[in-house]
Design a binder for these strands. Structure first.
Length: 492
RNA sequence: GCGCCGCUGGCUCAACCAGGUAGAGCAACGGACUCUUAAUCCGUGGGUUCUGGGUUCGAUUCCCAGGCGGCGUACCA
């Protein structure tokens, strides 16, 4: 550690600083302003005490211009030997990256640059390792994600994507709190996982001598709260899925889930539209934003398309109420590769034909429909067999009251009128168990305690899950989910 | 998982195709300079070219294997 030529030189400077009787890591420095505050209300001849990281130095013998960076804002400072006297020589021992406290007086240079004329200079923290160079910054993507603390200093857009994400999460909480929702934390460490189709991370709880899981979804616990008499609940927190990574997936991700009693999926649709208006207005004062090359218009109402209509629109095939063989034929015609699909499809012969059929249809849907939908759209009315926690449509028991919001070809969530009939829920779980036993590793396990809660009774309820990382990525115009995650998962 | 591409001083890149002691800018170090902002000018140091093997008189360069990463693709309802 700290063995490069430049680091050794800085460590030697550190020694010289201590020798001069200066504490290179003092405990405190009282500021009168942040750099942002000075710049926002700049006027000449103001006495200020500010602090920041030294990021550029231009020496001219007995005077020096430099810049300090404070919480993403930088300002020029001007140091003169005739003002600083002995202190001016401290500059010899400073490096780019050091934190400085400055007392000075504001002025504007001949070229119009707001500047602080330094009257006193205090070293607040000595930096040992050099920052990347000033022209290109840190370009290497691996280093940018691994050394995120450097990326945030030198690449302003990395910082701003994270800021946008934080704003989105704050705005979402405010939106829900103002509507009377209660944020309630539910277990992340669970004895049984559920609420989504995914493989869990497994762990071991020694005191109980048994296997535990990191949750893949908050759903079943939040619905227990509805059964328990809370009418409006939500949670914004991490879920974990033991799967690969790409521009839309990180193994741990932030999910908003909310449940509201006496509502159905139509009400939840309206809520999603309203939430997005709230977000885009507060972030950009507009309901239109640019994502990559597309202009997205979030003005309600969004387009609503039924699941099978969307498939027909984008593939030309009507797959409603057809048999398994026909779907298989269509898959081949469309050239969709299922050779590497999950064990479920490979060992498909064992599974219920209607179940494989619906899984295959959903494969077509995921492959050929979702990526093509650009403008904010709700896909509604999914097949029942792939939606074991959703309530049937009153006029068609093969379909459920469910929707997924899709934006810029990205699925950002999932919602339904929650199934609250305990006997029907037990039946659906058992169907899942059958598929599970036949080889579908992602079929959902039966949660007896959840059934017990439904048995006590759950009112009609609308529920929603939203991927906050994906929403942040779209609203921050980031190409990959990694950019809105402060520390994305890397291989170690 | 598969395919393609990449890995060279602290950072950004060159040399590799067609093998001959690795170059530049920034950063660092020494010096000049009291309105610069990619400051300028003069000078100096810094490299196990990701790792291991192979071919060769000679490998950063060609070949093989591995590591790490990026992009795409698959898995992820």
């Amino acid at each position: 550690m700290f063995t490069s030529e430049q680091e050794k030189i800085r460590i030697e400077k550190l020694r010289l600083i201590i020798e001069k009787g200066i504490d290179p890591y003092p405990n405190r420095f009282d500021r009168t302003h942040t750099v942002r505050e000075i710049k926002e209300t700049f006027s000449d001849r103001k006495d200020v005490r500010v602090a920041g990281r030294l990021i550029a130095v231009r020496k001219h013998g007995k005077s020096t211009f430099a810049n300090i960076l404070d919480d993403g804002e930088n300002i020029q400072i001007y140091l003169k030997k005739d003002i600083l006297g002995e202190k001016y020589s401290l500059l010899e021992l400073l490096d780019i990256g050091d934190f400085l406290g400055i007392q000075g007086n504001t002025f504007t240079t001949h070229t119009g640059e707001p500047t602080i004329l330094v009257e006193d200079l205090i070293l607040l923290s000595k930096s040992i390792s050099p920052l990347p160079e000033k022209w290109h910054g840190l370009q290497d993507k691996e280093l940018r994600y691994r050394l995120r603390y450097i990326d945030f200093i030198v690449n302003l857009e990395s910082r701003s994507a994270i800021e946008t994400r934080a704003k989105i999460i704050r705005l979402t909480r405010k939106f829900l709190d103002d509507k009377g929702f209660l944020e309630i934390e539910t277990p992340i460490l669970q004895s049984l996982y559920g609420g989504a189709f995914a493989e869990p991370f497994k762990t071991y709880y020694r005191a109980l001598d048994r296997e535990f899981f990191l949750r893949i979804s908050d759903e079943l616990y939040l619905k227990r709260l509805i059964c328990g008499g809370f009418n409006k609940v939500y949670e914004i927190s991490k879920d974990f899925r033991n799967e690969g990574q790409d521009r839309l997936h990180n193994p741990e991700f932030t999910q908003l889930e909310l449940y509201e009693a006496y509502k159905d999926y139509t009400d939840i649709k309206n809520l999603v539209e309203e939430l997005f208006s709230h977000l885009t207005q507060n972030l950009y004062s507009s309901s239109k934003i640019i994502y990559q090359d597309i202009e997205l218009d979030f003005t309600p109402p969004w387009k609503t398309v039924r699941y099978f209509d969307a498939i027909k629109e984008f593939t030309g095939y009507d797959l409603y109420d057809v048999d398994y063989k026909y779907v298989k034929k269509i898959i081949e015609e469309l050239g969709i590769d299922i050779s590497e699909d999950s064990a479920m499809i490979k060992s498909g012969k064992n599974l219920t034909p209607s179940y494989i059929r619906d899984k295959l249809i959903d494969k077509i849907f995921g492959d050929r429909v979702i990526p093509k939908i650009e403008q904010p759209t709700f896909i509604i009315d999914y097949p029942k067999s792939i939606s074991p926690l959703a309530k049937e449509k009153e006029d068609n028991p093969d379909l459920v009251e469910r929707f997924e919001p899709v934006i810029a070809g990205i699925e950002i969530g999932n919602a339904f009128s929650e199934l609250n009939n305990p006997l029907e829920q037990e039946k659906r779980f058992k169907e899942q168990m059958v598929q599970r036993e036949k080889g579908d590793k992602e079929a959902q396990p039966l949660d007896e305690d959840f059934l017990k809660a439904l048995g006590i009774g759950m009112p009609p309820t609308g529920g929603l899950g939203l991927g906050m990382d994906r929403i942040s990525m779209i609203l921050a115009n980031s190409r990959t989910i990694k950019d809105v995650i402060a520390f994305p998962q890397m291989r170690w």
